[in-house]
C-alpha cells in the first residue's frame, strides 16, 4: 500500500455520471438486503455506535463509480449507493481503496496502520468514525464472507472476483 486515496484514479469522464446512476440502481437492492442482514445478525454493533447511530457516513471507495451512504440507525437503517455529485452532507467521510475498506470492515487490516500509511483518509466527526471502527471490530468472522454467502455460489464468485479486481 502506498498511494494516498486522493491520488488514486477515480472513475471519471464523459458518461460517468450516467454510469454512476445506473450502477447505483443496480446495487441498491443488494445493499439494502446486506445491511438488514448484518444488523439482524450483529445487534451489538448498535450499542457501540452510541449517539452516532444517526450519523451520516459517506464511504468513498475511490475506484468505484459511486460512493456509499450509511446511516446506522437501527430503527431506520440506510445503506445506499449515491453518485459522487449527489452525496449527502456527511457527518463523517471515510476514503480509501475498495479492498482496503473491505478488509477494514473484516478486521483483516488495522485502521490505525492504514491511517499512518495515509492509505485511509478520515474527515468530519472523528468520534463517529472511531465508534464505527470499534463496533465493526467487535464482530466475529467476516462480514464480506457473510454477505457473499447470502447469495450462494454466485455471491462467493463475485467476492473472489472483486478481490482479484481490486488488490490492496
Amino acid at each position: 500500500m502506498s498511494a494516498r486515496p486522493d491520488t488514486l484514479p477515480r472513475a471519471s469522464g464523459p458518461g460517468m455520471s450516467t454510469l454512476a446512476r445506473l450502477s447505483c440502481l443496480m446495487v441498491q437492492p443488494i445493499l439494502t438486503r446486506v445491511v438488514r442482514r448484518i444488523a439482524k445478525r450483529h445487534p451489538s454493533l448498535f450499542a457501540r455506535l452510541g449517539p452516532h447511530q444517526g450519523t451520516d457516513f459517506v464511504i468513498d471507495a475511490v475506484e468505484l463509480p459511486f460512493a456509499l451512504h450509511l446511516r446506522p440507525d437501527p430503527q431506520a437503517l440506510l445503506f445506499r449507493a449515491v453518485p459522487r455529485d449527489a452525496t449527502p452532507e456527511a457527518g463523517a467521510t471515510i476514503r480509501g481503496k475498495f479492498m482496503l475498506l473491505l478488509e477494514l470492515v473484516d478486521s483483516e487490516e488495522d485502521g490505525d496502520a492504514a491511517f499512518f500509511s495515509r492509505d485511509l483518509e478520515v474527515t468530519g466527526d472523528t468520534e463517529a468514525v472511531v465508534r464505527l471502527r470499534n463496533a465493526l471490530d467487535d464482530v466475529d468472522g467476516s462480514i464480506a464472507e457473510e454477505t457473499a454467502e447470502m447469495f450462494g455460489p454466485p455471491g462467493r464468485a463475485i467476492l473472489a472476483r472483486l478481490r482479484r479486481a481490486y488488490p490492496t
Partner: peptide, 13 residues
C-alpha cells in the same frame, strides 16, 4: 478525545 480531533485535507495533498 476523538470528539476534539479533526483531520483536514488540503489541495496540495
Amino acid at each position: 478525545p476523538a470528539s476534539d480531533v479533526e483531520y483536514k485535507r488540503h489541495e496540495d495533498g
